[in-house]
Each structure stands twice: as structure tokens, then as C-alpha cells.
Design a protein around this nucleic acid. Structure first.
Lengths: 210, 210
DNA sequence: TAGATTGTTAATCGATTAACAATC
DNA sequence: TAGATTGTTAATCGATTAACAATC
């Protein structure tokens, strides 16, 4: 596989979502059509599609839509489901546990961990909540490499250290704190404050007369 | 103000968070220190700080930490609070309503909107939930320009059309669907599927022996 | 065939990094 | 003073866009 940038990678789920919402009227889809619908440049779409598709597109016709969908899904690994756990079942963690849509992205949440005795031992959306204090005992039994981190910032680094000691290889971090991980662990940060900063900056530009 | 890229903009909340977690031991902070802590290059940190600070830094000392914090907060507009509404009070919308941390980012959630009669008319975290069907009557009374969009994908575009008709100027979109907005409205998309795609790609690279 | 779309190669654009003199 | 850090200017790197011949 060629080297691929994060920027480019992020566009594939967007293509996929768009393709899936299309009606079944047209069998084929072309780069210019996608370009117009999503606001990306034609050239960019063409180059992106080339990365994930096995076959070449056909001039004047584009690509078979269903094949393209399947190519993207394969590329993103949506067909083999990975197990994941939620670390920290607060408001956000609870929302994720209740959200059943991750499965379509190849992610199955198999457990939650928290320190709150009111929820430890209960099930939410049929998913067991375990005691975070005992995670060293419980987590290794679950066959999980991915952790969704939704704990308070103060404990994020310490908990990261603990779970990466016992088999977690990937951290999807929703805590707005910088976290250091060792060489063999990957981390992806979702920083809502950053996203909001972009939004309000755009809004300011608009209002102050562009 | 100079032109500033979204990439650069996104880093400022990260700097800010880091600075706020520092103990009060050291009065000053330098670019190399931040660089080491956050993993950005020294040059990048230096250039970034120059964008937001009024004074120059001092060779061999860096900058006054509290002044820098205040400069970033000012730059990001965290001191003047904007009102916002949550459109769609499902699991994610509820999590945001219950999360009281947005205020520190200059955002105050003043109302929620949903179609579910079980929650319309109630309060969550002391925030009133209004009937989404009557939003044309209610929203204009609230003095809001920012909407946090957490509705099902099927209705996202239609609801966006409606709320931008009645005064919404900025949409923080958590729906993984492409949404078209008119010229005078800004939108910022938070696409968890994209973020997850990056994470699993990184994980795959690690596992397939880098 | 004509026209739309393709893939590829080259040009442009923007962001990051390197280099270095200035200075606390 | 010496050393660390600064701001600025130039070089590099990477991603996006433009151009164009090939072709269904």
C-alpha cells in the first residue's frame, strides 16, 4: 500500500457515507459527481478513489457504485470487527455505550470501566460495566486492543499507562489533555476544543465582514 | 490579524490546556519546553506563539506563562460567552447538555430541541428541552447563533435549512453526513468515523510491522 | 463520432523545518 | 560573558490543483 496521509484517510468515510445514501437509480458514479456533492475538487476525488479501488475507472462512465462502496469498506477494514472498551463511563462514555452505530465502522464495544459503584456491575445497552480499579484482572480476558478514553483529564495519563501495560495497543482519546504513549501504542486525539476554535474563528471572520 | 490556517488554529486549545495544567512553580515558559511536552517542533511552537502574543518573547527566558495563557484565551475568544443550542437530544446531545465544560470554551448551552414528547418540556442539567417542531417560534427568542447538531442523518439537512432560516449562523455538526449551507453560514464537521479510520490505520501499520 | 471522464505527469500552493544573527 | 532562546528569512517538504493525452 502506498503511503497515505491522515488528511486523505479522513475523506474515505465521507465518500462512503455519501455513496451509501445514494439511491439505487444510478449504477455508476463518477469523480465529478462526488466532487459536486461533497465540495472536494475533482482531481482530489479522482486521486483518492485510485488509492482504494482495485479496477480502473472507465472514461465517460466512472465506476460501479457498489464495487466502490465495497472497496472503501474493505480499505477501512469495516468488515472485520475489532473489540473495544470504554474507559470512563461518564456522560460521554455513556453516550458511546448507548450508540450502536460504531459496529458499522468495524468497532464492537464489549465492556465499560468506571470507578462509580452505582454503575459497576450493571449493564448499559447490554454492555457490562466493570470496576476500573480491577482492570488489570478483567481487561486481559476480553481480547481487546482498542480503548476509548473518556475519563477526567487528571487521571488520563495514569490510566493510559495502566491499560497499555496490559495489552491495549490503540487509544481513541476524547480527553482534552496531551497523553504520552510508548512506541508500540498508537493514539488518536479527538479534541472538541480545537474543533470549536475553528468554528468560532470562521464565525468571527464572517461577522467581521470577510 | 494574519491569515491563519485551521491546522494552526487547532493547536491553540492544546497549548492552552497544557499551560493550565502546569504548576505555578515556573513563572516563564519557553518554546522548547512546550515543544518537548507536546511533541510539536520548536519552530512551530515559536511561530504559533508569535501569532497570539502581543509582546515579544525574551531570549533565554521565553514568555510569562500567565500572560501567554491570557493571550491565547483572548485569541480564542474564551472570555465572551456565546449562546448555543443543542438540536437533537439523543445520547450524544444529552451528553453535551450534561457536560458543563463548554463554558470554559466560551460556549453556553441555553436550550435543547427534540421531537420526543417524553423529554420535551423537561429540564436536563437545568437546561430546558423545547419541541423541535415549534423551533421557528422558540429559537428566535433565545438570542443564539450557534447550533450543535446531533440529530439523525436523515433529517440533518432539512433541519439545517430550517434553523439557518431563523438566525443560526454557525453549525457544529456531529452528524456524519455532508450538509450544504448557504454562503453566510459556517459549519464545522466533527466526523468520528474519520477519526476512527485514522486510528485503525495507524494500528494496522504498527501491527503489520512498520 | 463527440463528449465526458479517466489516469498521469507537471506546476502551484501552503505549511513545516532549517539556519542564523540578535539579545536577554 | 556564555548559553539558551528569540524572531526572521530561506529551504524543504507534502498536498492540492492544473494540464492533457488516452479512451469508453
Amino acid at each position: 500500500m502506498k503511503n497515505i496521509s491522515e488528511r486523505q484517510l479522513e475523506r474515505f468515510p465521507i465518500y462512503l457515507k455519501y455513496l451509501l445514501t445514494l439511491s439505487n437509480d444510478n449504477e455508476n458514479i463518477s469523480a465529478p459527481m462526488i466532487s459536486r456533492a461533497l465540495g472536494f475538487s475533482e482531481e482530489q476525488v479522482r486521486k483518492d478513489l485510485q488509492v482504494v479501488t482495485s479496477k480502473e475507472g472507465k472514461p465517460n462512465r466512472g465506476r460501479n457504485k457498489d464495487e466502490l462502496i465495497s472497496d472503501i469498506q474493505k480499505f477501512l477494514g469495516y468488515q472485520n470487527i475489532d473489540n473495544a472498551v470504554i474507559i470512563g463511563v461518564g456522560h460521554l462514555g455513556k453516550a458511546f455505550i448507548n450508540y450502536s452505530g460504531f459496529k458499522a465502522f468495524g468497532l464492537k464495544i464489549v465492556a465499560g470501566f468506571d470507578i462509580d459503584n452505582n454503575i459497576v456491575g450493571t449493564k448499559i445497552n447490554n454492555i457490562e460495566i466493570y470496576d476500573l480499579n480491577d482492570i488489570e484482572k478483567t481487561l486481559p480476558l476480553l481480547n481487546v486492543k482498542i480503548a476509548i478514553l473518556t475519563v477526567p483529564g487528571e487521571v488520563a495519563q495514569e490510566i493510559t499507562n495502566r491499560i497499555t501495560e496490559i495489552g491495549i495497543k490503540a487509544i481513541w482519546n476524547f480527553v482534552p489533555t496531551h497523553i504520552d504513549v510508548s512506541e508500540n501504542v498508537v493514539i488518536e486525539n479527538v479534541n472538541l476544543a480545537s474543533s470549536l476554535a475553528v468554528l468560532s474563528h470562521k464565525l468571527n471572520l464572517k461577522e467581521k465582514g470577510e
